[in-house]
Design a binder for these strands. Sequence first.
DNA 1: ATCAAACTAGACTGTCCAGTACTATATGTC
DNA 2: GACATATAGTACTGGACAGTCTAGTTTGAT
Lengths: 208, 208
Amino acid sequence: MAAGLNRSERKHKAILDAATQVFLRNGYLGTNMDDIAALSAVSKQTVYKHFESKEALFIEIVTSMVSVAGDTVHERIPQFRGSEDLAAYLVNYGYQQLSVVLTPQLMQLRRLVIGEVSRFPELAEVLYERGPKRAMASLAATFTHLAGQGLLVVDDASVAASHFNWLVMAEPVNRVMLLGDIAIPKPEELHRHAREGVRVFLAAYGKN
Amino acid sequence: MAAGLNRSERKHKAILDAATQVFLRNGYLGTNMDDIAALSAVSKQTVYKHFESKEALFIEIVTSMVSVAGDTVHERIPQFRGSEDLAAYLVNYGYQQLSVVLTPQLMQLRRLVIGEVSRFPELAEVLYERGPKRAMASLAATFTHLAGQGLLVVDDASVAASHFNWLVMAEPVNRVMLLGDIAIPKPEELHRHAREGVRVFLAAYGKN
DNA sequence: ATCAAACTAGACTGTCCAGTACTATATGTC
DNA sequence: GACATATAGTACTGGACAGTCTAGTTTGAT
């Protein structure tokens, strides 16, 4: 039996995978449970055996995706080596975050959650906490550390973190949110964009 | 007859107003035409006399709101007076934009359009064009002008415009998008936020 | 006053869909 | 091999909803 999963576990996973696809493609109201059953090659009964309701399934999927994405972003945070050029380090930092977030899946997840703010405010809150808020908290910690080493001049580390985060993320994220996946920039463009953001950031927060 | 409108025109407007409310509250799929008819105190037949379909009504409403909002933002652009302090001028610029965009209606409109990117990509495109893109074009023109007077040091005016725009707009807009209207900052907070953004902007683009 | 166009009220069609019921088959554990 | 549980397949219930139809009323221009 593949990957040590028994039948029930395989079905469970198949349903989650199918539902993820369908919800992302069609939205919450635009999705119907028959499609999910069909795509997961499972009977509708089985779907309801594994998940209490459409709503419960939706919440579970979105919560899980948001957490996984937040962890991925967090894992990509590069470690600063004293020998390294600070600007290059920050450019790389920004680039890593951009390249995780600017994927069709995560952009669509963000659209989905934003479109359902009224119906599922908890989900939007979770996305905010595990997304931008968490990213900015890490940044603030990094900046505090760098300021301690005299490499940055930072008054309020959270404000500096917000400035860095949005200088780098805001433009591409907001453009892609509205214009769709074709607007996802190529890696070179992302690098250039990160460099420009870092230049501005360092003009305000760099030493001297 | 009030405001020079005959019956037909009054009904037309009543339907638009009601539909705006209902679509903003419930989303596209979550809205039904009976609710719109009831709220506009009009028979369902009349709704279909004035608008071809739910889809057509939706498109008309969103397009119109987006245009009006874009014009409002544009009208709020302050004129720079040579005598004035540049920082104060830019803070005011940013604050004006923030205070137009950060309203429950416009935030909900943005959520609605983003949630419907797959179904109505044209609407999202229109929002992008008449929203951030137009705002940034105005900013770029302003910066080119200011650079011509030696008040700013700007290499690429569009890049500078993007930096200014997102330094000021990104943090509150993205937070409110996810956390809802209760997260709309008070005017003093918006001012403070604009000041901080302008400080960073001028560190990078101010002269000397 | 006349008349066409706009409107009301409510029934109706056709379709979609969340969730359930039922019967038969497959799986895995003892 | 026996037995509980999971699953398939498919039909069904009940409600929602876009859009139409019909018959009678109101409005406003001539």
